[in-house]
Design a protein around this nucleic acid. Structure first.
Lengths: 194, 194
DNA sequence: ATCGTGATGACACGGCATGTCATCACGGTA
DNA sequence: TACCGTGATGACATGCCGTGTCATCACGAT
């Protein structure tokens, strides 16, 4: 029998999510979490930089994943096909089929401003990775930044509509709809300034 | 002579900005700020919800301003002219001529992750206001959201380039450049999925 | 059997943020 | 002049947040 049960991190995460569900994120304190997990407060902060990070575990891999996805695309791909392909892949592999979980998570994140800010940083970090990857493909700096930010916008807007829907349409349909809408909005002729 | 000098809020802000510049945001404590301002710690938190808010004073008016700008546009304006006009107005009235100040502020915000997150929330709050205003103009929900997010993207990307430039080109030139770049990127024909 | 490594406990500490009540200036009113 | 309501501030207490530091113990390698 070992001095410590070997799953400290898992116990902390489980205890934290239980308490967040029972009494809300803000009302939950780290001492409460560690008491339920059978650990000390100090140990919590060895595994998570702060209370919010429990809900963002495993996020660190996302920038690298985004980079790889951009870098591995065929060299002939123009910017537009690049982002449509990447967004489609992300939608199918990371979101489709998890709607119920994502709805629950969105509810918790919305309940606390601090969590909302953390979620925004996640988006910003991924955007920076995509921007860097696009520049490595040879895109001009501004094009790369616009491409990354616009991809995030399309995914974000489509995701909200997908979560809010009554029916059961797949996420990629909302993505196509968003892209079509944005393209037509920006394609109005004769409206260029000057 | 009154018991309290009447400019508590201004003294707090001045003391805070001085200390942030002298020793950095993270290294500055609220007690230090209030001591320099000649007030108590408790009084600081009566004026600012937390230490970061000193750098975001006056932000509360931005959503209403954005709403007004959208609502006051001529009813005939299509989405594209709407955002180009609004962005041009924002660029000229709130940014042009303040490049040095904005560079200093960006430096402070970049020095601390917490400040970066707060800045992202500012952008999100304005986006929500613009989305709501666009919906009140009768735009479909998804179009409104895309329009707001894309406007923020254009302004954000142009702003960074404007701040980073060596020369002295006006911000609206970077805005035009960003819009042109985005439109051409999204206008590639034959790249529509399916 | 010994030692290094790594995770955890235990303790201390300062800053953060809030609740509560007393205090004082100011303006209005009689 | 006297009184009173209002609002800002001071003073005090409290609990959580997050980090530094050192001791302790299990485990694996040698």
């Amino acid at each position: 029998m070992s001095r410590w049960r070997p799953d400290a991190r898992e116990r902390l995460e489980r205890a934290a999510l239980e308490l967040f569900a029972e009494q809300g994120f803000a009302a939950t304190t780290v001492p409460q979490i560690t008491e339920r997990a059978g650990l000390t407060t100090r140990t919590f902060f060895r595994h998570y930089a702060d209370k919010r990070e429990v809900l963002f575990a495993g996020e660190a891999e996302l920038p690298a994943m985004a980079r790889r996805m951009i870098a591995d695309a065929p060299p002939s791909a123009d910017p537009l096909t690049l982002i449509t392909g990447a967004l489609r892949a992300v939608a199918d592999t990371r979101f489709e089929g998890r709607r119920a979980d994502l709805l629950r998570r969105r509810e918790i994140v919305r309940s606390d401003p601090g969590l909302g800010e953390r979620e925004l940083r996640k988006r910003a970090v991924i955007c920076e990775a995509v921007t860097a990857a696009c520049r490595e493909r040879g895109f001009p700096a501004m094009t790369a930044a616009l491409l990354a930010e616009t991809s995030a916008t399309l995914l974000f807007v489509a995701l909200q509509a997908w979560l809010d829907q009554d029916g059961d349409r797949p996420l990629h349909e909302f993505l196509d709809e968003a892209l079509t809408s944005l393209r037509s909005t920006l394609s109005v002729t004769g409206a260029v300034p000057h």
